[in-house]
Design a protein around this nucleic acid. Structure first.
Length: 577
RNA sequence: CGGGGCGUAGCGCAGCCUGGUUAGCGCGCCUGCCUUGGGAGCAGGAGGUCGAGUGUUCGAAUCACUCCGCCCCGACCA
């Protein structure tokens, strides 16, 4: 490709709308342009990078035995009513009517449609297992789209669905996908980690997330330093230590004035205790109903765990005014004793003795509060966020925390969709059984953003070679110089003939601009033909990632560059073969 | 949806508080000259319903109200 013919509008300045680096660089490097909030046009360069990801995904999915199909983006409401998600999915599902006033939605995911295909076309255990996937644009009416491609409303996703005869077979399908995902992200040249995850609204029993490690990640991961354990903090179970569990509270319940002490720290200071001696009471809205949640004063409520314990579809924190309106409880002085709303507690709270808690009266706290004696929660469970002081749930080892960007998620779905949609097959004995399903997603467009979050510097993007729109950029620094220009052209053709994806910068620009743009768009290899060629017959090869520079004799430059690229790509592939 | 901020040329911004000629600056763009190894220089030029509407005023980018759009923090997620 010739740069002079390529639609590649780069900018020197960063548009004010972009906050995170991948968004800034995607805009500056002419990869995307915004249409409106959460909706982007992929310009040629951005599309090329995304197609690189998609190609790797397709190769590995096919290798794993999955088959590609393509489902409609518009889906009829009745399918969603059958699965029950028309009610459950919430405002993220964009609904609309056609001219006949029939209800439809824009597909945020395709469990319903694929299950419909399965129930129509798969009838016998002999046909199983089956794994079908697509690469398609999804639409989710996100509450707040942000960060460019990281969280758009429209995004490109690869979604796969497996159908098996039983749990064991489904487990096998799951493991095959997990393996395929490892290969995919490995081949993309990304630093990533698979972690145990909450299965979220899609439902199902078990799941792993694939996280690209980057400082700007939206998720926090805990990783054990001594075993294989890795999990999303939403999921990471807190192991309750046995220490102190035998002690029994003896103090009598007494009231104490704590005027103006709304924060745990201040109450602790005032009463000369530590936050760990205080029971913190917070109110959440679970499917619209207020619920009081207890954790130790120095702990944080993990909302996903709370949601799962309550079996709620939605849990949200509420502001002080709303708490008062709904419950007549004074924020800052709430406590579990004689509370009039639903009460749940973190397991750790039940071990506390002679604790401090709010008195449900402004300016008052209680001393000597003892679980069991003074209050009994409706539910007790692991509700708090894990901390670095907690041991690994698997082996007790030390935990470290890392930020990550979720680019893939695999779920064991079980039979929830197949049962709801009556999708069954006949087993050997002629008995109708629901398919045991799995579903497997990769945010293809998000992978591009994540790759940039992980790989960039002050000068721009540093594409990993497998995702780069072009593998090499050849700079012609002597547009008006016959010898230099023809040498650049010759190198360009030579690389093309060797099957290398090469961009020739043949624009009538000064060298400085060419260097800057080459850096900005992140092409891994840069070959410069200029003065040095004229003088010594040498081409300068520079690696975008390291800045490492070597001089190659013009005659063998094409061959050497092609070889380097081949070797780098092969290395990434071989690391798991 | 709750909280915060912003809308002035393609992009980045000033002007607004304290209303008053022709609305500026940098980058980019066009023409010419010149220059050619890290976003050069000189000269000339094009480009604006100041987000929209209503109001206040002799007079509104500037003040008030309403609406729209966008961005940031929270809940959601590939």
């Amino acid at each position: 490709m010739r740069y002079s013919k390529l639609f590649l509008p780069t900018t020197r300045e960063t548009p004010a709308e972009a906050e995170v680096i991948s968004h800034q660089l995607l805009l500056r490097a002419g990869c995307i342009r915004k249409l409106t909030s959460g909706l982007y046009t992929y310009l040629p360069l951005g599309l090329m990078a995304m197609q690189k990801v998609a190609a790797i995904v397709r190769e590995e999915m096919n290798r794993a035995g999955a088959q590609e199909l393509l489902m409609p983006m518009v889906q009829p409401a009745d399918l969603w009513q059958e699965s029950g998600r028309w009610q459950k999915y919430g405002a993220e599902l964009l609904r609309f009517k056609d001219r006949h006033q029939r209800d439809y939605c824009l597909g945020p995911t395709h469990e319903e449609v694929i299950t419909d295909i399965a129930r129509r076309e798969l009838h016998s255990y002999r046909q199983l297992p089956v794994n079908l996937y697509q690469v398609q644009t999804k639409f989710r009416d996100e509450i707040r789209p942000r960060f460019g491609l990281m969280r758009g409303r429209e995004f490109v996703m690869k979604d796969a669905y497996s159908f098996d005869v039983d749990d064991e077979a489904a487990g096998k399908s799951y493991r095959i996908m997990k393996e395929a995902y490892h290969r995919i992200f490995q081949r993309c040249g990304l630093s990533f980690r698979a972690v145990e995850a909450d299965s979220g609204s899609i439902g199902g029993s078990f799941s792993h997330e694939f996280m690209v490690l980057a400082d700007t990640g939206e998720d926090t991961l805990v990783i054990c330093s001594s075993c294989e354990y890795a999990a999303n903090v939403e999921k990471a179970a807190v192991a309750l230590s046995e220490a102190g569990s035998a002690a029994e509270g003896t103090a009598a319940l007494t009231r104490v004035e704590t005027p103006g002490m709304k924060k745990v720290d201040r109450v602790a200071d005032f009463l000369d205790v530590t936050p760990a001696d205080i029971i913190k009471t917070m109110v959440f809205l679970a499917d619209g109903e207020p619920v009081a949640v207890l954790v130790r004063g120095d702990r944080q409520v993990q909302e996903v765990k709370l949601k799962n314990l309550l079996g709620a579809a939605e849990v949200e924190p509420i502001d002080d005014d709303t708490v008062w309106k709904l419950t007549k409880l004074p924020v800052g002085y709430m406590g579990p004793v004689d509370i009039q709303i639903r009460l749940v507690a973190d397991q750790e709270v039940m071990r506390m003795t002679d604790a401090i808690a709010g008195a449900n009266e402004k300016g008052m706290h209680l001393r000597g509060v003892n679980p069991g004696r003074d209050f009994t929660p409706e539910l007790v469970g692991d509700l708090r966020q894990i901390t670095s002081e907690d041991g690994c749930p698997a082996c007790g080892g030390r935990l470290s925390f890392t930020e990550g960007i979720e680019v893939g998620h695999i779920f064991k779905l079980g039979t929830s969709y197949s049962e709801a949609l009556k999708a069954t097959y006949q087993d050997k004995d002629g008995v109708d059984k629901p398919f045991v399903m799995g579903c497997y997603g990769i945010g293809v467009s998000r992978v591009v953003a994540a790759a940039i979050e992980q790989n960039h510097d002050d000068n721009g993007i540093i594409f990993p070679l497998p995702l780069a729109p072009f593998q090499v950029i050849v700079l012609n620094l002597g547009m008006k110089n016959e010898a230099i220009s023809s040498a650049a052209e010759q190198l360009y053709r030579d690389l093309q003939d060797r099957g290398i994806e090469v961009l020739l910068d043949d624009r009538d620009e000064r060298p400085g601009s060419k260097f800057k743009d080459a850096d900005l768009i992140g092409i891994p290899y840069r070959a410069t033909v200029g003065k040095v060629y004229e003088k010594d017959g040498m081409v300068e090869l520079r690696l975008r990632a390291t800045g490492e520079t070597t001089m190659l004799p013009f005659e063998s430059a094409g061959k050497q560059i092609a070889t380097m690229i081949r070797e780098e790509l092969e290395q990434l592939q071989q690391s798991f073969d």
